[in-house]
């Protein structure tokens, strides 16, 4: 009845593998934390290069120009992403493969 191989609907075969349509509150919290961690890395690299009066690198400059920080992002962009096949053009960001290890911050304007 209990344990790893208990009989549940998803394990009993068939195509029942449910992914919730939205993130839970702790998932959203961890997502914000991950966004801030990436922001910190960017900040550290930028400060270190500036301190040495070194020229920056294209990837860093483009990121700073194009990507909003966690504080600047709208909640809508933190937890959902654009998808042309979805009703109302939005799906939960957790539907994105490897979503905890990739950066997905900007969406098409107007969506």
């Amino acid at each position: 009845m209990f344990g790893a191989f208990r009989i549940t609907s998803p394990l009993s075969g068939g195509l029942l593998w449910k992914i919730p349509w939205r993130l839970s509150t702790p998932q959203k919290r961890r997502q914000r934390k991950r966004l801030r961690l990436v922001d910190n890395v960017i900040q550290t690299i930028d400060n270190a290069l500036k301190k040495q009066n070194m020229e920056s690198t294209t990837k860093l400059e483009r990121w700073k120009e194009e990507m909003p920080t966690e504080a600047e992002m709208r909640p809508k962009d933190k937890y959902t992403m654009f998808d042309r096949k979805e009703k109302r053009y939005r799906k939960g960001i957790h539907k994105l493969p490897k979503w905890t290890r990739v950066s997905q911050r900007i969406n098409p304007p107007g969506f």
Partner: peptide, 14 residues
């Protein structure tokens, strides 16, 4: 600390 290392870190920042 140099631009080349910075570029490498940008690839794996997550």
């Amino acid at each position: 600390v140099n631009p080349s290392t910075a570029g490498q870190i940008m690839r794996i920042k997550e």
